[in-house]
Amino acid sequence: MSEPDVFGALANPTRRAVLRLLLDEGEQPVQRLADHFAMRRPSLSEHLRVLKDAGLVVERPAGRQRLYSLRPEPLREVADWLDPYERFWRARLTALRDVLEDLPDE
């Protein structure tokens, strides 16, 4: 499958914990993330690679470190899939806003 596998990336509890840490604490180096997990750093790096391939995290070099941060955009797709009604109502409310544009206020 050539499309990024967001669902596959989210299906793993360690990777979800990494995303939660990045959400709560912001951008950080891999070593600080590793402090939260009882696993060897190469294993964590592999999880980060999966998250990066799914487009859920981005990394950038800073000196000798690599800093990781969250990229939440792909989660919109997941949210839409989880909540088709939320998507339905958001679209309808946008249509309502357009209808109101044509109405005189009383």
């Binding site: 009604y85 939320e86 109502w89 309502l96 209808v99």
Partner: peptide, 29 residues
């Protein structure tokens, strides 16, 4: 429960019309 909210730049009476007039309701829902 699904909860969504939206700010609309019109007074509640105008929004109410769009919610309760059958023709207007048909246009957006």
């Amino acid at each position: 429960t699904v909860s969504v909210d939206q700010y609309l730049p019109h007074p509640p009476t105008t929004v109410w019309r769009a919610l309760t007039d059958s023709d207007l309701l048909g246009r957006w829902l």
